[in-house]
Design a protein around this nucleic acid. Sequence first.
DNA 1: AATGTAATTGAACAGTGTTTAAAAATATAA
DNA 2: TTATATTTTTAAACACTGTTCAATTACATT
Lengths: 207, 207
Amino acid sequence: MGVAERKEREKEVLREQILTAAKTLFLEKGVEKTSIRNIADLIEYSPGSIYHYFKDKNEIFHALHQGGFQQLMGKMEVLITIPNPMSRLKAMGSIYVEFALENPDMYDLMFIKEAPMEHVSNSNDEQWKEGYGTFNFLRATIKECILEGYFQGHDQEALSFMVWSTVHGMVSLHIRRRCEVVLAQRQGTIVKDGLNEFFSILDRPSS
Amino acid sequence: MGVAERKEREKEVLREQILTAAKTLFLEKGVEKTSIRNIADLIEYSPGSIYHYFKDKNEIFHALHQGGFQQLMGKMEVLITIPNPMSRLKAMGSIYVEFALENPDMYDLMFIKEAPMEHVSNSNDEQWKEGYGTFNFLRATIKECILEGYFQGHDQEALSFMVWSTVHGMVSLHIRRRCEVVLAQRQGTIVKDGLNEFFSILDRPSS
DNA sequence: AATGTAATTGAACAGTGTTTAAAAATATAA
DNA sequence: TTATATTTTTAAACACTGTTCAATTACATT
């Protein structure tokens, strides 16, 4: 009686197809400008059938959202091989920025867009599980830095938040197209340059 | 023959009414979820008549956008009385954060929300006039800091962008409710604490 | 009072997310 | 194999959206 299992697998395949098509279109023309009909056209199904696999458009976002956190965590795994906490902190920043610039729409979904389920705050804990994971790793790295004397007398929690904010600020200004105010000839590299400036500042000795 | 002038004034009044209604609705339910018909309903005019005062929805957004920049610039005027560039830089950061926390919705509109149709409309220069103004002021302040030896060997443009990114990052993570990952007992003051951490880091001497 | 101009309207167009009743495809049972 | 039951898919419809435009209304000028 493996029929139910096969059906389940087939259903999962179509679910995956929808997700892949949605991701393709989101990255291509943006989330807002991608319609359910566009997705349906791409997988050659009717618009209505998508609603048998996802409650609504938001649920498609949410599924991709979680996938994004796993992707980011995957990119961060190499960091455990870096023993020096300061080097690890910098590498973490580089990976974060790299992820954001390579997957701007996904980053938008994860960190910039209005979180759609905020009023239904019950499931928040589950949703942010991965988010907690990455921030905890940052916090632990900062703690090691402080212990090794890199940021003497600094506040672990506030410093962690500030470091995260700096990289988030740079990539989100870039993604939301607020970089036109910087010199035209610098716009192409301003995020990378800004990150290096940040590293330089972090490298300066505690007075 | 003051008729033309009176008509002009009346036209300006209705323009103002549209802007006020749009602002109310944008801040209440967001730009994307506010329709021209919603705005028209609120001022008790037909949807079509709005197009006699604004080319399209984007033009309404940009008009409000510019108003926000003027408000921020107004708050920044006191900075010219601070002679020391480093003190001025810090005060600028404080005012920026204060503005964002006091007017989160307007800040959202100005720096976080998707600026609609930016790639389509080619009048970018005019739109960002005020944006250029505030960033120029930051750039000039950073330049003075460098000249006075505060950031020896640093890149003016990249450093300016990085400083802006840090304050923007902190307030935008706060506004978009991504601060739940920080310790619960710190969440109320994390932006202010993070800003102070940033100031401390900036204060450290160039090696 | 007649004319010309500017403001306003409501209908229409092409698009959106979503729902739903009917149809098609498929699995199970007799 | 045939009949029934279940699941999957579809097309049409609903209530929206931004925008355009011909027709109407309001009004200042002659």
